[in-house]
Amino acid sequence: MEIILVLIFFSIIIAGSFLLAFFWAVRNGQFDDQYTPSVRMLFEDKENLVVKPEKNKSNNIH
């Protein structure tokens, strides 16, 4: 039955590390803004935007 002491010891350590992760998240400001990130993640990152406009211009000549 002593094995349960070891198990509880580990479970507390794991649970405690999640608590620490939560602390880190709060201090890091992750709970300050609960809306904008949900919109931001839908934007596409475009690093190579340079190619696109030339195509556009040729299409739009009337």
Binding site: A15, F18, L19, F22, F23, V26, R27, G29, F31, D32
Partner: peptide, 12 residues
């Protein structure tokens, strides 16, 4: 932020 921390500890 403090309120969130307090809640986190209490929940834990």
């Amino acid at each position: 932020r403090t309120l969130f921390l307090k809640l986190g500890i209490a929940g834990f």
